[in-house]
């Protein structure tokens, strides 16, 4: 579910096609955009406080074969939420789980690559201090 949230609609469509999965599903809950209140902690680790809301879109479907799937992710992309819920439902079926995971592996690889590039660019801005003069001398 985390992965589907980070994917684009096009990537999810490609994954569905790659895994030869049917898009047919009944809406248990039609894709819907709403709000989730995000929270922080006082001092980073203390009591919770309300930081502000975020838009979240959710969907829930049932496949003709009976599995149900859910999706919740940031943003307002309803078609993506529905597709993510369908993928989640297919993943619930043990015989299709491997195919779903294989089809999503491209997204995993892209995310990994982006994270590494981000880490390398960030690392280049890390400060390496060197001592000029010690005050006590």
């Amino acid at each position: 579910m985390a992965l589907a949230g980070a994917a684009t609609l096009a990537e999810l469509r490609d994954a569905m096609a790659a895994a030869c999965l049917a898009e047919e599903a009944q809406d248990l809950r039609a894709p819907e955009t709403g709000l989730v209140m995000t929270r922080g902690r006082i001092g980073g680790d203390g009591r919770a406080f309300n930081l502000g809301e975020a838009t979240v879109t959710r969907a829930a479907v049932r496949l003709p074969s009976g599995e149900t799937g859910f999706a919740y992710h940031l943003g307002r992309d309803r078609p993506k939420a529905r597709l993510a819920a369908i993928l989640d439902a297919h993943w619930q079926a043990p015989e299709r789980r491997a195919a779903v995971e294989a089809a999503l592996s491209g997204i995993v690889a892209r995310r990994e690559q982006e994270a590494q590039a981000h880490a390398r660019r960030t690392a280049a801005t890390r400060v390496n201090f060197f001592t000029l003069v010690r005050g006590e001398d």
Binding site: L28, R29, A30, E32, R62, T68
Partner: peptide, 11 residues
């Protein structure tokens, strides 16, 4: 989970 549907036209 055999969930029943809610409102047909939620709004």
């Amino acid at each position: 989970m055999a969930l029943q549907q809610g409102f047909a036209d939620p709004v």
